[in-house]
Amino acid sequence: MGDGRNHYKEDLRFKIANREALMGVFLAIFNFIWWFAFAYGLGKKPVAEYTYIFGFPAWFFYSCILGFILFSLIVFVMVKLFFLEVPFEDREEDVE
């Protein structure tokens, strides 16, 4: 790490920030795959062969409705378990 000859101490809080940003990116990718796979995986059949859940076509139910509930839950769990509280203001204090 670091740029060789130039010595400065890297802000430790950024390790946390970087990790959490990556989690956000991965969650978005997973969100996209879930949304896409159910919508077009189940939805590409002829409409006559559709199955229905709570009145909605199965593709729509899984992709949009269950997807919405599931990703809201994942965000909740991700934030509660993996996102750390970090002071924003200080300059001297160390984290962790």
Partner: peptide, 11 residues
Amino acid sequence: GYFTLAVLGKK
């Protein structure tokens, strides 16, 4: 809902 804050967020 989550992406902007997760990515820009703390940094």
